[in-house]
Amino acid sequence: MQTDDLIAMLAKDGAVHRRPSLLTWTPVAMAAVLSAVLMAATLGVRPHLEQWAGAPLFWLKCAFVAALATAGLRAVSIAAIPGARFGGLPWLLAAPLVVMAIAAAATLLVADTGTRAQQFWGSTWRSCPFLIALLALPIFAAMLNVMRGLAPTRLRLAGAIAGFAAGATAALLYCLHCPELAPSFVAFWYLLGILIPTAVGALIGRAVLAW
């Protein structure tokens, strides 16, 4: 059966409009818990984390990554359904990127010339993206496995979306360890860490998600 025929059949039966149940995504939730445990055991939670609660930039970082994770997970649930439309989801994804870009530009503009480079590079730029990508692996694997059991039709896109959602979720966990708060650092290096599994997902999506 051709893909177009299958989509037409599902649309006729009304199956396109059914969303996977929360139980379907239980393996992804369990993988996220595993990533959190691995982060705590190998990297450790930042000492005196409670003191950061008073730092607006800490909450800005967390809100930025949480917004990306929310958009990514929403996109995954849509991409797993044949014929489903993303609607206004691209705007939901773009909004936190724009806000963080504005915050990064604003903080760099008011910073002393000598501190601008430090704000961008921080002290962990060499490891940050790769640690995020590594923490994303269990979530990424679980997400691909769940999606394969559903019916994605745009396989490369679905793989990329799964990688993005896994990377953003891992980045949110990484916030509990990372000492960096500068918006310019978060906007670039965190996003780079998220885009690594996104690129991998696009590369392997067709092979892994074929059904």
Rank of each mutant, 00 (worst) to 15 (best):
A162F: 07
L172P: 03
K61T: 00
P138M: 08
R126Q: 12
L172Y: 13
A199P: 03
V200H: 01
A71G: 07
M1I: 15
A32M: 12
L135N: 07
T115C: 08
F188A: 09
A94G: 00
W125K: 11
A95Y: 03
I102H: 00
M39C: 14
A53E: 14
A182E: 04
A32Y: 10
Q2E: 11
L57V: 07
I194P: 01
A31G: 05
V76H: 01
P179N: 05
A32L: 15
A133H: 11
P96S: 10
P82Q: 09
T3Y: 10
P129Y: 00
Y190H: 04
A67W: 14
L135H: 04
S184Y: 01
E180Y: 13
R154V: 04
L109F: 15
L155I: 09
F185D: 06
I78V: 06
V208T: 11
P96H: 03
A199T: 14
A63C: 06
V208C: 05
W52R: 12
A160M: 11
I194E: 04
G44T: 13
F164G: 00
A94T: 00
G122Y: 07
M1A: 12
T26W: 03
L43Y: 01
I78G: 03
A75N: 09
L10K: 11
V200S: 10
V110A: 13
L191R: 02
F130W: 15
T24E: 00
L134W: 08
G149I: 03
F140R: 02
S127E: 13
I139K: 11
R154E: 14
A202H: 04
G122C: 07
I102V: 15
L137Q: 11
L89W: 15
G193D: 08
A103N: 12
L34V: 05
Q51G: 02
T115P: 01
L23P: 03
R148L: 12
A170P: 12
P197I: 08
L173D: 07
D5H: 12
K12P: 02
L131C: 03
M1T: 15
G205L: 04
L6C: 05
A210W: 08
S35Y: 03
A11M: 13
W91S: 14
L155G: 12
A79K: 06
L155P: 08
L176I: 03
L6R: 14
A75L: 13
A95H: 06
A133D: 13
A166G: 09
L108S: 02
A80E: 09
R206K: 13
A67T: 07
A207G: 08
L49E: 01
L173Q: 08
Q119Y: 07
L131Y: 08
K61F: 00
A63L: 14
D4I: 11
A151G: 13
F120Y: 10
K61G: 02
A105D: 04
A40V: 06
